[in-house]
Write a protein that binds this DNA or RNA. Structure first.
Lengths: 231, 231
DNA sequence: TTACGCATTTTTGTCATACAATACAGGATT
DNA sequence: AATCCTGTATTGTATGACAAAAATGCGTAA
């Protein structure tokens, strides 16, 4: 006894196909519900269901009362759709900690990789990010940005788009907790020093040192974030 | 100029909350559309949209004509919702390769971690998995399972549920390509030997060796998978 | 020409209603 | 108790309606 499919599922599959193949171009608006209905011989009711389904899968972007916009999915879209779930999961301290620890784990590996395989262009990027970091020590908002940017470089080095998307996702998911962190020029300076130490370990091609420096750096950050829970 | 929300979005948020808090228990059926409609003062149309939305976010499981079933989301649910996107992304060879490389990267880090920090219970699990692996060399189906199981142990060692969910996700996403791989007792034996070598490096607490053995092991697997593209 | 403002037309969000097909629950039958 | 039968409840889908907002087209001003 096979579950018979809903009309909406069939149409959704076909629309997905059309989006993937580019027949419906990225960033273009979807045809009107009425037209889609005619094309597929279905009622607006069904088309509407299709649209909400694809919206939640990240293949359409749908502001109320505007035409849905086609989004050809990339790995970043994938992580975006997860967003709402993760948001719920990290409401408990345990959730944030789990997420943060996974980040620490991955980033340790990324830093190690950087120490071993970073090319001169990567080094340049790191140096630039570090410099920007230094210059922003006295500006609490800017420092946050340059801080993130410095870490982002590590996610970019392997050249795998999944990691860059993942960095986006991590920073978004953890942002809420991060911004609550106390900021001060002194703290910023200490963070900058950590970054600098990591950078130098990478220049020395000392993977073990780089990794453990990063670990310590993130653990310190975590201690601060954790403080924001028990307020 | 705030986008005014749709009724469906408001109700969806509230239902999410009720699912998270357990007011709607995990695995229980959702109330009938009509009843939800009455409770929220909305038409069936709207309730229906809410249901498709939550279904696509992985908080409901919805077989046609049956009551949707509440699924309290965990990190595994998160990866499941990503599934449909990833499926599309990996249709091109480039996509699979990207995904596979990310797996290699993560798993290298996991193996290194195992070599450094594995506890006796972890070692026992590895040994058991390896043993099962050996016994399945002559059975093409079973070997596949024990193969996966051996790798799974590494994802479990850090004790972070994100990694175990991620292992599930990887194996599901890559399964389609994996099963096409040629299987033979000889190949199985070779894979077993690779596993054994990795295990022994871990026993020796030799992280570098374990990592590079794993890398080689996975690269070999990749060569085989890659072969299935140009057929 | 370009830019802006306004009136007209579409389109979306929501509701109500309808009906066929299917699942479900309760009773009758074995 | 297990099985079948039947009536009811529920889902999937269609149609029509309407208000509110967006898109469109057009005429006028800069």
């Amino acid at each position: 006894m096979v579950d018979q499919e809903r009309a909406a599922d069939v149409i959704a599959r076909d629309l997905e196909r059309r989006i993937i193949t580019g027949e419906l171009p990225d960033n273009s608006p979807l045809p009107a519900e009425k037209d889609l209905g005619q094309e597929y011989g279905a009622s607006r009711t069904v088309i509407r269901e299709v649209i909400t389904a694809l919206t939640n899968r990240g293949m359409l972007e749908n502001r109320p009362r505007f035409r849905p916009v086609v989004k050809k999915p990339g790995f970043d879209a994938a992580f975006n759709t997860v967003g709402s779930i993760v948001q719920h999961l990290i409401n408990a301290q345990e959730g944030v900690e789990t997420l943060f620890q996974s980040r620490v784990f991955l980033e340790r590996a990324l830093v190690r990789e950087a120490a071993i395989r970073a090319q001169s262009s990567d080094i340049r990027e790191l140096r630039a990010a570090l410099q920007a970091n230094k210059e922003a020590i006295d500006s609490s908002e800017d420092f946050y940005k340059t801080d993130i940017e410095f870490h982002r470089v590590f996610y970019a080095i392997p050249g795998n788009p999944i990691f860059t998307s993942l960095h986006e996702a991590y920073t978004q998911w953890l942002a809420a907790h991060w911004v609550k962190m106390e900021r001060s020029p002194e703290r910023n300076a200490r963070n900058y020093e950590s970054h600098k130490a990591i950078f130098e370990a990478i220049l020395d091609r000392d993977a073990d040192a780089a990794e453990s420096l990063l670990e310590r750096h993130l653990e310190q950050a975590w201690e601060q974030v954790k403080g924001t829970f028990n307020v």
